[in-house]
Write a protein that binds this DNA or RNA. Structure first.
Lengths: 252, 252
DNA sequence: CGCGATTTTGAGAGCCGTCAAGATACGTGG
DNA sequence: CCACGTATCTTGACGGCTCTCAAAATCGCG
């Protein structure tokens, strides 16, 4: 399933014209910051679904920002099972661990066609020295990831199967909505129910039956990857979620 | 159970004579770094078991480093249950979220008597501007927390109750050993089985029965807070852990 | 000695996992 | 256009891990 990683291609997307920057969700950059990032960026990488982007235990010389597409972080266990830790969406940063610890403790794989900005790890230190605001943004991104993992852990540790599913789908809606990947109570999910099972710590069979329970109760629809929320209040209630509006986020 | 937070007391421990610095596990500081941290530190706080240190949803003006004692991070749910995300040990940093997001998404409570170094949040920005190496350390700490949460999520999502218990105890041993809080296959845990249940997403009853299973199989002993590993290889095997030696860590 | 917190044990129910098989969808080659 | 293979989704049966309820035993402490 996992394919080889291609060599980075020349830059196609100028940072000054970065499509992510147009999204209302992202913070604006100073000229100096933009200039540094432009210089920081080594190239672009386009990978196909199923391609491994980072490998657990490895020590990639590259860091990535997702420009487009979906990926997912996961840990493999020796019995063949895996835990998906989180999905990575446009604007998310991949490989910070390799930079800080010289070692990934999880892998990352492309779920759809993915475009990545590529950065050389050995320039991260320059970022910290010359651009404290961007260093702060990196800390922001690391902390944001920590929050998501804490939320997932709470869902998996404390909630029933249908509640976990409701939680994850609503959570993804909230993350997708600001970049126009979701809207009008509709969310296009590029993953299979097997992926969902691995996120939520459930078996595939039970995941499927729980989804069926949610659909037959008219709480949501799930049609070939298109999820529609039919009763958002009830779903949010079972998932124990409130609808706080998130602040503007940074990205590198 | 939760008590009030006292006002910070004057500094008792000079950073230059910080007891943590004597531990082999922590990295050495440059003089300039030490000077800044000394200046950064606003005071010290001693709290009793059960005291709330940070509250979910709040926006504390203070950040903390644990000097001594155990605390734990947790999220509360409306039905009264809670998920403990992680324990905080000496050297761990508390409140980075409040600094980055203006809002904690989890609470922190003292498990034992705890001594904390107190830092004002509004000087964090100065740290990023003037001391890139310390900024990098903050990112290190945030990323380390992310790793722990990922490991917990994997244990809770993929492993049986006894395996989760084995995992958590071994994990804590590894964290305690470098600071002489554990050794010789013995670990002093200051938490109850109810805490353990809330970490692992298990009921108290089943947690107890699973511990009994581990003890009656002669894999470990659990005696009034003293855990002894009797068959470490087997425990590590069920917990799916390898024994990599961790690198030196920073602290603030 | 008495009380609350913690640990332990038993019984019964139910959520969820495993095994198995069928149905549906989709891409590929004939 | 059809046949076929693979991936994904669906359903049923059954077992067991884990939960809840309940109560007793033990510990810590005043």
């Amino acid at each position: 399933m996992t394919k080889m990683l291609n060599e980075p291609m020349p830059v196609k997307t100028e940072c000054s014209a970065c499509p992510l920057r147009l999204m209302s969700r992202f913070r604006e950059f100073e000229d100096a910051e933009l200039e540094f990032i432009s210089e920081f960026k080594a190239g672009e990488l386009a990978v196909q679904p199923g391609t491994g982007i980072l490998e657990e235990g490895s020590n990639s010389p590259h860091l990535f920002t997702v420009l487009s597409g979906w990926a997912f972080r996961y840990k493999s266990l020796s019995d063949g099972s895996r835990q998906i830790l989180n999905f990575a969406l446009p604007g998310d940063f991949l490989g910070l661990q390799a930079s800080v610890f010289d070692m990934m403790d999880h892998s990352v794989e492309a779920l759809t066609d993915v475009t990545l900005c590529v950065f050389p790890r050995d320039k991260v230190w320059t970022l910290f020295r010359q651009h404290p605001s961007l260093a702060h943004d990196l800390t922001w991104l690391a902390t944001a990831e920590e929050r998501v993992l804490g939320a997932h852990l709470t869902a998996v540790g404390q909630r029933s199967a249908p509640a976990r599913i409701a939680f994850l789908l609503l959570h993804l809606y909230e993350r997708c909505e600001p970049m126009n990947l979701a809207g009008g109570d509709k969310l296009l999910v590029p993953f299979t129910q097997a992926h969902l099972a691995d996120v939520l710590g459930l078996s595939l069979v039970h995941t499927n039956k729980s989804i069926r329970k949610l659909t037959s109760n008219e709480l949501l629809r799930w049609d070939k990857g298109l999820v529609t929320f039919l009763d958002r209040p009830k779903l949010m209630d079972m998932a124990e979620m409130s609808d706080a509006t998130p602040a503007k986020r940074p990205f590198i």
